[in-house]
Simulated scan of single mutants.
Amino acid sequence: MNRKSVTATLLAAALLSGVAMQSAFAAEEKTNPIPGIPSNSLEMWGGKDGVHEWAVALFHYIMLDTRINFLFKEFGNPERQIFLNTQLETMVLGGPNEYQGASMTAAHADLNINMEQFNAVVEAAYNACERINLHYWACNQVIAALAPFTDDIVTR
């Protein structure tokens, strides 16, 4: 697997599997960032508003990509996904734990997601980072923290 594929895989894991991280945090005013993510990461992203801007850009690219847009059209609600991704990424970056979504396993169990689709989401996420002028390394921090959940998402 080349470096670009590994990076793509890590980002997709972050986006699609971060829900599983919810149980790692107690509901409180503010969480600690995931280990390996600096305590000022949420501020570097522009706070919750910056994370929301990224989530909007993410779904813009997802909905343009024929490898994956049908999954979101058929099984998802992009507006709700933007809302949940904003909550999730804000929490991962050290903001409040307000995540209201299902676990990654439950959310993806019947979708039969393959690695190509997973990597397409990763590409969309990096495109979203570029669109909002977020540093590449800031995207990678979140991806690396959430990457272990790939197996909860890729089921075929």
Rank of each mutant, 00 (worst) to 15 (best):
W45R: 15
N77L: 03
G18H: 08
N140H: 09
Y126C: 04
E98H: 12
M21Q: 01
A128V: 12
E89C: 12
A138Y: 13
I62C: 04
I153M: 00
Y61R: 11
A55R: 07
Q117F: 07
N2C: 04
D152I: 04
A24F: 03
S5A: 14
L42A: 04
A102I: 08
I132N: 02
A26P: 06
E123L: 13
L71I: 04
E43K: 14
E28Q: 15
I153P: 00
S41W: 12
N2Y: 05
Q100P: 02
A106G: 02
F72E: 04
Q22H: 10
N140T: 03
N85R: 07
V56F: 07
A13G: 15
L58V: 06
N32F: 08
G101Y: 11
V19M: 09
A14T: 04
T9G: 13
E53T: 10
H52C: 08
A102G: 02
E29V: 08
R131G: 08
W137R: 12
H60P: 01
C129V: 10
K4V: 15
F25G: 04
G94Q: 03
A120D: 03
N114G: 14
I82K: 15
K48N: 08
I34N: 01
F72D: 01
I68Q: 10
L111H: 06
M63S: 05
I34A: 09
I62M: 09
G47L: 13
E130K: 15
N119K: 14
M1Q: 14
G47P: 10
E130S: 11
R156I: 12
K73M: 06
P96Q: 11
G46R: 09
P148D: 02
M104P: 03
R131A: 15
M63A: 00
V142E: 05
P96W: 06
G18P: 02
A125G: 15
W137L: 05
G46Y: 14
A26Q: 12
V56K: 15
N97M: 08
D49G: 11
I37T: 03
V19I: 06
S23C: 03
D151F: 07
E29N: 05
L93S: 06
L146E: 00
M115N: 07
F70L: 05
E116Q: 13
A27N: 11
R156F: 07
N112H: 11
Y99T: 01
F70N: 09
P38T: 00
E89W: 14
Q100E: 14
W54P: 01
M115F: 09
A138M: 12
A109L: 08
T31G: 00
Y136M: 05
C129Y: 09
S39I: 11
L84G: 00
A26I: 07
N77P: 01
V121C: 11
S41T: 11
E123K: 12
E116P: 00
E130H: 09
A13F: 04
M1W: 10
G36H: 02
L58D: 08
